[in-house]
Amino acid sequence: MATAPWYRGVAVRPYTCGMRVLGIESSCDETGVAVVEAAPHGVPRLLGAALHSQVAMHQDYGGVVPELASRDHIRRVLPLTEAALAQAGLTLSDIDGIAYTRGPGLAGALLVGAGVACAMSAALGVPTLGVHHLEGHVLSPFLSADPPAFPFVALLVSGGHTQLMRVEGVGRYTLLGETIDDAAGEAFDKSAKVLGLGYPGGPALARLAEQGDATAFALPRPLLHSGDLDFSFAGLKTAVLTQARKLGAGLAARQADLAASTQAAIVDVLVHKAVAALRATGLRRLVVAGGVGANRALRQRLDQACVRHGWRVHYPEPALCTDNGAMIALAAAMRWQVGAWPPGGDGLAFDVLPRWPLEAVALDATGTG
C-alpha cells in the first residue's frame, strides 16, 4: 500500500478508487447535508441528502435574521447529518472527506458549518475543504438526469448574485457579466414586497404571475440593449413601486397582472443576455443554476431560445436549485477528480469568507490554485 499523504497533521489514505464526500451547507437560511460519491472519472452521484428551510422562522420578520439563522443551523446540522447518512446507508466511518460552505454568506451561519466540518475532519482523520457557494451552484446540474459537459456558459441566478460565466472546467471560470446593483432574485423579492406578498417573495410572485397578463404594464428592461453582458434590476423595482402607487386602492384587483409583468421583464433580460453570451463565446451549451433557475417562465423561454438556435440548456433538478448540501459535496468531489483536493490546507484552523469572489477559487493548468 502506498504511503498516505500527510494532510492537516493527520495521515489519510490515498483515494485511488473513489471518494465519498459529506457536504454541509449553512450560508444563509437553509441547512443542508448530503453525501456524494465520486469515482476518478465520470459524473459523481448523490447517495443521500437532507435539508431544512428556515422560511417559517423568518416570515414574521420579513427577511433573514442572521443570529436566528445561526442558532437554527446549530440545532439542525447534526440531525440532518444522521438523516443524510441513513438515506445513503452509510455511517461516518464510511466518509472519505468533508466539505463545507466557506463563503459567501452570513458570517455566523457559515461558521456553524465550518466548525462542524472541521471538528468531524479532526475526529475522523479525513480531509476537509471549504467550498465556494457559487461554485456549488454552477456545478449542481452535474447531479441532474441530464448533466452538461464542459465547456459551457453559466447563467447564475442565486439570491444576491446574477452572473454570466464562461466555464471551461472545474475551477476554470471567466466572468462575462454581472449585476451592477440588484440581482434578479432581489428584484423578485423586493417587487413581491411592494405587492404585499410577504416572505419569501420571489416564489410567491412567480405563482401569482401565472394568473396575470404579462403585457398589462409596460415595465422597463434595464440594460437590455446595453451591448454588454451586465445586468441591472434596481430600476425595475422602482418602476414596480411607482406603478403600485399609481394603482392605489386598485392594486388588489391588478396584483396578478403587475406580478406577471414584473416576471416577464426579469425573464426578458435574463434570456436576452444569456443568448448574447452564447453568441459572443461561440459556445453551444448553457447551464442555469441558482434559486431563480427553478422559475418555470424562465425555463420555458430559455428552452424555446435554445431550440431555436440549436443549443443545449441544462438545469439542476428543482430541489437542487435552492441552497443544499449536495452541491457543496459535489463541488469538492469534482475538485478531487481533477487532483485539486487533497492534499493542501492550513492545518486544523479554518476560516469563512462572507465576501468571496468566485475568481478567487480558480485553478491553473496544473489543477492547483
Rank of each mutant, 00 (worst) to 15 (best):
D181P: 14
R166T: 03
L236F: 07
G169T: 00
R207M: 11
D228G: 14
G115N: 13
L46Y: 14
V288K: 03
L223C: 10
P127Y: 07
E30M: 08
G103W: 04
M19C: 09
K193E: 15
A122Q: 13
P220L: 00
V35C: 00
Q304G: 14
E168M: 08
S27H: 09
E210T: 13
H137K: 07
L195I: 02
L175N: 11
L110D: 06
G32V: 10
P147L: 01
G32N: 05
H58E: 02
D189G: 09
V313K: 09
F188A: 14
L124Q: 00
A260P: 09
G125Y: 03
K273S: 14
E186L: 04
G291H: 14
H161G: 12
F142N: 06
A362P: 03
R301W: 13
A56Y: 03
K237N: 00
R71K: 08
V288E: 09
F152Y: 14
A259P: 15
T262P: 14
Y100Q: 02
L348S: 14
L92P: 01
V307L: 15
G97H: 08
T81D: 04
G108C: 01
E210M: 12
L22R: 03
L302N: 07
R207F: 05
F150P: 01
Q255M: 12
R299Y: 14
Y173W: 08
S53R: 04
S144G: 11
R20S: 02
S53P: 05
G202V: 05
H133N: 13
L224F: 03
A332S: 04
V292K: 00
